[in-house]
Simulated assay, not measured.
Amino acid sequence: MNAVTGSLQQISMQDTLRDHPSSMLQSANCLLSFVKLVQCWICQNVDARKLTNEETSVAVLASFSKSPQRSTRRMSLESGISRTSLRQILTTQKWLPYKLQLLQHLNEDDPDRRTEFAEWAKQKLEQDPQFTQKILFSDEANFSVNGEVNKQNHRYWSDTNPHWMDPSKTAGTTKEMVWCGIWGTMIVGPFFINGNLKATGYLKLLQDDVFPSLCTEAGTFPEFFQQDGAPPHYGCQVRAFLDEQFPGKWIGRRGPVEWPPRSPNLTPLDFYLWGHLKAIVYGVKIRDVQHLKLQILDACAGISPAVLLSVCEEWEKRVALTIQHNGQHIEHIL
């Protein structure tokens, strides 16, 4: 660009001296103004304006390779390269921002128990391809009026998935506990729980709300009932009630089918429903508890049967992967 500018300036001065010696200064000023216009046009239209040249790209990728958790905002401040140019370089080189995954730590015997459960589920699926749709999966989750844990600012830039994980549990603040179930193409609930959930309250919830809501016009009923190993689920009265309702066919802690502990990736409510609901619920600013409940109800009502069928297929995929990976975590390969 400097060479072009110099040539234009030289030509303009020579022409002025030869043809218009009496008005040299005026003509020179006019031509210099023209040169500035040419420079502006070059800056707006010539590839030289692009920062994302090969040398810059190499430097940017080297920097992110050294510090892959650095944000594009911080990189822009340190390098002087615009965030738009940084994103263009990363996108061109097929580098992606991977999210942090929060995982529970597995104890020594957990993989064996997870594998045992997955092999049981696989056998059931071989006997009955519709088996997944005959299970009532259940779980509870806390929703906060103030929002949820935000992982959006955690990124790891790389050209390959680094399987970035954090084996820790998140904590909440002000909570509203919600019970929900997935049974085939149906959402069961949601039911809201006042205060802390104990075994007596959980039993009352099952007796008064959950099971009465399962009555259908076709007279069908879930063949299996699944719950995790949370303390309220383990009460003697709760287990006795489930033995009556689902003799030999309920899944849980010390149930006829043992539920593997620390396995949220094997229940559709954890790997799909809660995340989906929170994404919708917190799409607007929650005013109060009543508004929160209405948001949850509307979000549940908006889930289609087709989506729930896909969720069932995803569960079957996770069962197979759990067996393939000997009961270890599978989120990083999904």
Rank of each mutant, 00 (worst) to 15 (best):
N29W: 08
N29D: 11
N29S: 11
C30F: 13
C30M: 13
C30K: 14
L31Y: 14
L31H: 13
S33T: 08
S33G: 13
S33Q: 12
F34I: 14
F34W: 07
F34E: 12
V35G: 06
V35H: 05
K36Q: 03
K36L: 01
K36V: 01
L37M: 11
L37H: 02
L37W: 00
L37V: 02
L37Y: 00
L37K: 02
V38A: 08
V38I: 14
V38T: 08
Q39D: 01
C40Q: 15
W41G: 02
W41P: 00
I42P: 00
C43P: 00
C43F: 12
C43Q: 09
Q44S: 04
Q44T: 00
N45W: 08
V46H: 15
V46K: 12
V46Q: 10
V46E: 14
D47R: 10
D47A: 12
A48C: 13
A48W: 10
K50H: 14
K50T: 04
K50M: 11
K50V: 11
K50Q: 12
L51G: 06
L51Q: 11
L51A: 01
T52S: 11
T52A: 07
N53T: 04
N53Y: 05
E54I: 01
E54H: 04
E55D: 09
E55P: 00
T56F: 08
T56Q: 04
T56N: 07
T56G: 03
S57L: 02
V58H: 09
A59K: 07
A59W: 02
V60A: 04
V60G: 02
V60E: 02
L61H: 03
L61R: 01
L61P: 03
L61V: 01
L61D: 04
A62G: 11
A62C: 07
A62N: 09
S63K: 06
S63Q: 04
F64W: 12
F64Y: 10
S65I: 03
S65Y: 09
K66W: 06
K66F: 14
K66Y: 10
S67C: 09
S67A: 14
S67Y: 05
S67W: 10
P68L: 09
P68A: 07
P68Q: 06
